[in-house]
Design a protein around this nucleic acid. Sequence first.
RNA 1: GGCCCCAUCGUCUAUCGGUUAGGACGCGACCCUUUCAAGGUCGAAAGACGGGUUCGAUUCCCGUUGGGGCUACCA
Length: 475
Amino acid sequence: MLTPRVRFAPSPTGYLHVGGARTALFNWLYARKTGGTFVLRIEDTDRERSTEAHTQVILDGLTWLGITWDEGPFFQGADLARHQADAARLLAEGKAYRCFCTREELEAQRAAAAAQKTGFRYNRRCRTVKPEDSLRRAEAGEPFTVRLRMPDDELAWDDAVHGRISFQGHDLDDFVILRTDATPIYNLAVVSDDIAMRITHVIRGDDHVSNTPKQIALYRALGAPEPIFAHVPMILGSDGKKLSKRHGATAVGDYQDQGIFPAAMRNFLALLGWSPGGDREIMPEEEMISLFSLEGIQSKPAVFDVAKLEWMNGQYLSATPAEELRAPVERQLARLGASAGARDLLPVIDAVKTRSRTVVQLAEQVAVRLHGPSGELEPKAAAFRQKLGAAFEVNLARAVEALSPIGEAEWNSERILEAIKQGAEQHGTRLGDAMQPIRIALTGGTVSEPVNELLAVVGRDASLERLSAVAGRTS
RNA sequence: GGCCCCAUCGUCUAUCGGUUAGGACGCGACCCUUUCAAGGUCGAAAGACGGGUUCGAUUCCCGUUGGGGCUACCA
């Protein structure tokens, strides 16, 4: 068996959608698994909507996910001549014909069909125009499109994920392959390119199954062997509809911005519609590659569950040493307008790592420890403060009193805890009532690492300063 | 409307005719604990419906219902 050649062929008319990213991932996984070649092709034949900026975003998204291509990126627009030559050949062999019906005529027929609630299909009027008449009219300058003469036969294939899928040629249109301006339509361009690039496995979204019989007809008309088709299920929103903008974040870049790790995204996407067959959840790249198979791809659509993505990201976050987190956290801090200055971030990162699921959340917590809370207290914190009343400030003042004697050199979590406990005991204060005000004063919220560790991480001078400030604010 | 695809906990899934239908997310409880997480233990939670085939169906076949996709001189 010859080595597989697969391709990912996005159109640069929008951002890299998670569905597209997963399709790319499956192609990539298959290529790596089989030692095959992964080709990247940009389908820019829709000149109206294609932009270079979108192309770049797609390339960046794939790179971010660690999906590398072996050939390309090729641009479909560059192969116009071949597409036209293929169409001309089909025309010459009588497998396609010129259609002189105007857009208006077609539009009227479509509207009439819609009014009667029946399906529209081109009436094939121009099929019977005699070749010599067709040529004469074309040479006289009459505008025309080129349509494929759809055979009546069954058009079926053995789909690698669905099994056998079959269409009847007579249910299909004599679809247009060349526009009035002689540019190719998607289906022609795709087949022409896949043949030229010797693609052996077409792995793409389920939304293309209805294109497949048309493309098979094209392969046959062009006399080329058909590739193996594998149609992967759609990704749905939580309402069961095809995932789209109105479901929120659908672009890979959105998740990148939210602090999701590429490895977590890749792991999550791989498991959406594919399963290695056991209980595996967190899988390193090599394992995914070695276990990947087209047969393991699910045939039903899958709902994109952000909660699970975030959980998975948390798993990757926990497993990442603070050292490796330093650079990404610094980038996020910069976005937040915060800075670590001369401070070592590692202890701070370690202190809050388990309380974060994304790097963005992590950086926010780090920023609070570096610069103190900003703005209003969180609702729970405000409620606690209210409940405690004047004791809130009193307890803070006592904490400052208990902690002040500790020198910079002894400022560690053990020593701090000891001092707080001692102070609380001395004043007959419940430990929680002594601790929680400190947490609130330092973070603005009720969630953090243990208070003594929090104090250690914030540092002696900054801690005492903030505590005193809050204690003295009202008392 | 037509054509095509699909159907196991709320969600992602395992099961390749025989299981107390397993795991994960999420949810609940408990443990741990100065709070919250993390971690640990436990729990609630599924084969859409109706026919077949078979000694035996979640699994194979048919139908119903439900959902999705496509239906352009877009890709």
